[in-house]
Computed example of a mutant assay.
Amino acid sequence: MPHAPVGPVVNKDEEALARPFVKCLLRLIRTQDSFGLWEGNSDAELLAEFIITKEQQCATPLIGHPDSDALWRLDMFYTAVALAIEERSGVSTSPIIGMKPLGASGGWSFYRDVHLFGFETFRELAEAGTKLVDDATAAIEA
């Protein structure tokens, strides 16, 4: 069976998977696997939960409580950000998630954001996490 051609998108994914933040996220995910169910999975397979296409976002109902997968993605991402900040700066950190009013509807944008939490590509995942870590460590150094 012939292999799929390696193109720019695949190369960008491989570069993203090699970023320090993504490696930290992967370590965190692998530590959650107490039964070895994910042992043979590739890094891309483990991070596939974080990839949410625009079509998936449009199909996601925004009413009610967020599903457990969305909450897991949110928790893993921001915990990995905190761990990466701690690794780089030596300062103990923990994730803090803020909420803001949605507006006239009286709801909370936090719930909408949780329902839709994810990234379209591994590159966007890596860039978002890296930016948060870079900004926090710059603030700590200042």
Rank of each mutant, 00 (worst) to 15 (best):
residue 2 P to A: 06
residue 2 P to W: 05
residue 2 P to N: 13
residue 3 H to G: 10
residue 3 H to I: 09
residue 3 H to W: 07
residue 4 A to R: 08
residue 4 A to H: 10
residue 5 P to Q: 08
residue 5 P to E: 14
residue 6 V to Q: 08
residue 6 V to E: 04
residue 8 P to F: 10
residue 9 V to C: 03
residue 10 V to Y: 03
residue 10 V to Q: 14
residue 12 K to C: 03
residue 15 E to Y: 00
residue 15 E to H: 08
residue 16 A to G: 03
residue 16 A to D: 00
residue 16 A to N: 00
residue 17 L to T: 04
residue 17 L to C: 14
residue 18 A to R: 05
residue 19 R to M: 04
residue 19 R to A: 03
residue 19 R to H: 02
residue 19 R to P: 00
residue 20 P to M: 06
residue 20 P to N: 13
residue 21 F to P: 06
residue 21 F to V: 01
residue 21 F to L: 08
residue 23 K to Q: 04
residue 23 K to G: 02
residue 25 L to N: 01
residue 25 L to I: 00
residue 27 R to D: 09
residue 28 L to D: 02
residue 28 L to P: 02
residue 29 I to L: 13
residue 30 R to S: 02
residue 31 T to G: 02
residue 32 Q to S: 08
residue 35 F to M: 07
residue 36 G to H: 09
residue 37 L to Y: 15
residue 39 E to Y: 13
residue 40 G to Y: 11
residue 41 N to D: 15
residue 42 S to C: 11
residue 42 S to A: 10
residue 43 D to Y: 12
residue 43 D to E: 10
residue 43 D to A: 15
residue 44 A to W: 11
residue 45 E to I: 14
residue 45 E to N: 04
residue 47 L to D: 14
residue 47 L to T: 13
residue 47 L to E: 04
residue 48 A to L: 10
residue 49 E to Q: 04
residue 49 E to Y: 07
residue 49 E to W: 11
residue 49 E to L: 10
residue 49 E to S: 06
residue 50 F to M: 06
residue 53 T to W: 13
residue 54 K to H: 12
residue 55 E to A: 14
residue 55 E to Q: 09
residue 56 Q to E: 08
residue 56 Q to R: 10
residue 58 C to H: 12
residue 59 A to P: 04
residue 59 A to T: 07
residue 60 T to D: 10
residue 60 T to R: 02
residue 60 T to I: 02
residue 61 P to N: 13
residue 61 P to Q: 01
residue 64 G to T: 15
residue 70 A to Q: 11
residue 73 R to I: 04
residue 74 L to T: 14
residue 74 L to G: 06
residue 75 D to S: 09
residue 75 D to W: 12
residue 76 M to R: 06
residue 78 Y to E: 03
residue 80 A to R: 02
residue 80 A to I: 00
residue 85 I to N: 01
residue 87 E to K: 01
residue 88 R to K: 11
residue 89 S to M: 08
residue 91 V to F: 09
residue 92 S to M: 09
residue 92 S to Q: 05
residue 95 P to E: 10
residue 95 P to N: 05
residue 96 I to G: 12
residue 97 I to G: 02
residue 98 G to H: 10
residue 99 M to P: 06
residue 100 K to A: 12
residue 107 G to Y: 12
residue 108 W to T: 07
residue 110 F to E: 03
residue 111 Y to A: 14
residue 114 V to L: 09
residue 115 H to E: 12
residue 115 H to Y: 11
residue 115 H to K: 03
residue 120 E to C: 05
residue 121 T to Y: 03
residue 122 F to H: 03
residue 123 R to H: 03
residue 126 A to V: 00
residue 126 A to K: 02
residue 127 E to L: 00
residue 128 A to S: 11
residue 128 A to G: 02
residue 130 T to P: 04
residue 131 K to R: 07
residue 131 K to V: 12
residue 132 L to G: 04
residue 133 V to F: 01
residue 133 V to R: 01
residue 134 D to Y: 12
residue 135 D to L: 09
residue 138 A to Q: 15
residue 139 A to N: 13
residue 141 E to L: 04
residue 141 E to R: 07
residue 142 A to V: 09
